[in-house]
């Protein structure tokens, strides 16, 4: 899936400034850029290199080491199925299978219409409410396969 995006260079510079262009904040800067586009467009790498005074290799190394940053475009809604231990023994894998079948994509993939990305996350810390999923910043707990699918259908309906 490829889509053209227009990069708001001003906003990205504002983000870098908010961390005083400190190279120690590289990961947080990339996370904030991710919040804008749901991924870090590789086009911004030269700017990060220049403004933070770090090597390209370090930027790629950090971007690929941490799970919260992606260099690949992701959907408008990022669904994270919690696969922490408490959710696992309460049936998180069934929720994952149901969502995967519903959206017709595998774990880590994005739907063709770029609406949803399905990911697994290692514990969101809502262990008493498992199985849990998050959609962007919203948390949904106490789910099973059918209620999880229902939530995604609601997002689908609201998006069209």
């Amino acid at each position: 899936m490829e889509k053209e995006i227009e990069i708001d260079w001003h906003k990205i510079n504002v983000i870098i400034d908010s961390y005083s262009a400190n190279n120690e904040s590289l990961l947080m800067i990339m996370q904030d850029i991710s919040d804008m586009y749901n991924y870090v467009p590789p086009e911004v790498v030269p700017l990060l290199e220049e403004r933070l005074g770090v090597k390209k290799s370090l930027i790629y190394s950090v971007a690929t080491f941490y799970k919260t940053v992606s260099l690949e475009p992701r959907g408008k809604y990022i669904i994270n199925v919690c696969t922490g231990t408490a959710c696992h023994i309460r049936g998180a894998s069934k929720v994952m299978t149901a969502l995967s079948e519903k959206l017709n994509i595998g774990e880590g993939e994005t739907t063709d219409d770029a609406l949803f990305t399905l990911e697994a996350v290692r514990c969101v810390g809502c262990c008493a409410s498992g199985p849990v999923i998050t959609v962007n910043h919203e948390i949904y707990g106490g789910l099973d396969s059918s209620t999880a699918v229902k939530i995604i259908e609601d997002y689908e309906a609201n998006a069209t």
């Binding site: 400190n22 120690e24 904040s25 990961l27 190394s61 950090v62 080491f65 941490y66």
Partner: peptide
């Protein structure tokens, strides 16, 4: 400082590497 979803960063030396802006 916000971490990036890496379990190993709970280890002290990895955490400090991450604080320095490097892979943990």
């Amino acid at each position: 400082s916000r971490g990036g979803g890496a379990f190993v960063c709970g280890e002290s030396t990895a955490l400090m590497a991450s604080l320095e802006g490097k892979p943990g």
